[in-house]
Computed example of a mutant assay.
Amino acid sequence: MSQQRPPLPPFTEETARRKVQLAEDAWNTRDPEKVALAYTEDSEWRNRDLFINGRREIVEFLTAKWERESGYRLRKELWAYTGNRIAVRFEYEYHDEQGQWFRAYGNENWEFDNNGLMRNRYASINDLPIAPQERRIAADGREGGPS
């Protein structure tokens, strides 16, 4: 029997919002193993120009991502939902090893299996260099910049 990750589809506005918040919370842990458990074993991703297949590749991708992107903090917002699909908009901030801060903006389309595991994730993302004083997401995850 497959693992379940509530809330399960079909989504309501309430359960879609909850699913988005759970995803935001998980990604903000920056724990690749924990994050990967929300995806099917054979999950397919498109992340920028990369195509990622399965949990093992998800863990490898996220490990490398969070080694490069220091101070990573993410915000997700429900955009739309229907049946077993959710669309989100997001932004996150991070800095590189030289200390340059960036804000990344994007959209994701998610598709879930009946057990609430994400089987498809398609992400379009753009990065914008920002000055430290332009940060909008505090280190503790709240709005309002650095803390």
Rank of each mutant, 00 (worst) to 15 (best):
Q4A: 13
P6W: 06
L8Q: 02
P10E: 09
P10H: 08
E14F: 10
A16I: 02
R17E: 12
K19L: 10
V20H: 06
A23L: 14
N28P: 02
P32R: 07
V35E: 00
A36E: 00
L37M: 05
L37K: 02
L37G: 00
Y39C: 00
T40P: 02
D42L: 05
S43H: 07
W45E: 04
W45T: 03
L50G: 07
F51R: 14
F51T: 14
F51M: 12
I58G: 00
I58M: 02
V59E: 01
T63V: 11
T63C: 04
A64Y: 11
R68Y: 11
R68W: 11
R68T: 12
E69Q: 15
E69W: 09
Y72Q: 09
L74I: 10
K76I: 01
K76G: 01
Y81P: 00
G83I: 05
N84D: 15
R85G: 03
I86N: 06
R89E: 10
F90C: 05
E91C: 12
E93A: 13
Q98W: 06
Q98L: 12
Q100E: 08
W101H: 10
G106Q: 05
N109R: 10
N109P: 00
E111R: 10
E111H: 08
M118K: 04
N120K: 14
Y122G: 03
S124Y: 09
N126L: 13
D127P: 01
L128I: 05
P129R: 03
P129V: 02
P129F: 05
R135P: 01
R136M: 08
G141C: 08
G141L: 08
G141P: 03
G141Y: 10
G144H: 14
P146L: 14
